[in-house]
């Protein structure tokens, strides 16, 4: 038996679920951003597997753009986190209750 596209999809699904659990349960802004990165990584794995499955380069091209967008998202997200930390002195999203 060879490795099948189903195995690749299962691996990508596990990685995306792990990232989602991290983003939902952790109470630290940096860990939430890391969870989003893990989810993007799972999507990239699925796209590369699909590129191999159908012998089309579109999948690989999409992974290139996923990497570019992840870089943009991380730079802006970390800048916002630093700004919030200087403003409130905390990284816990539960502490941001100025509007309450």
């Amino acid at each position: 038996m060879g490795i099948a596209f189903g195995h690749v999809l299962a691996l990508a699904g596990i990685v995306v679920v792990l990232g989602m659990v991290c983003a939902v349960t952790r109470r630290n802004l940096i860990m939430i951003l890391l969870g989003v990165e893990v989810m993007l990584n799972g999507a990239a794995i699925a796209f590369t597997g699909a590129a191999l499955r159908w012998q089309q380069l579109e999948g690989q091209a999409f992974v290139l753009f996923i990497i570019a967008i992840a870089a943009a998202e991380v730079s802006l997200g970390l800048a916002l986190i630093v700004y919030l930390y200087h403003r409130t002195g905390s990284l816990d999203p539960q502490d941001y209750q100025v509007l309450k």
Binding site: E37, T48, G49, Q60, A71, V74, L78
Partner: peptide, 23 residues
């Protein structure tokens, strides 16, 4: 392993090398 050699290099350089170091 999936034959995407350029993406493998990019993953090491951009993801592991730049994004994680920024974190």
């Amino acid at each position: 392993l999936f034959g995407a050699t350029f993406l493998a290099a990019l993953m090491v350089i951009v993801y592991a090398g730049a994004i994680m170091i920024l974190f």
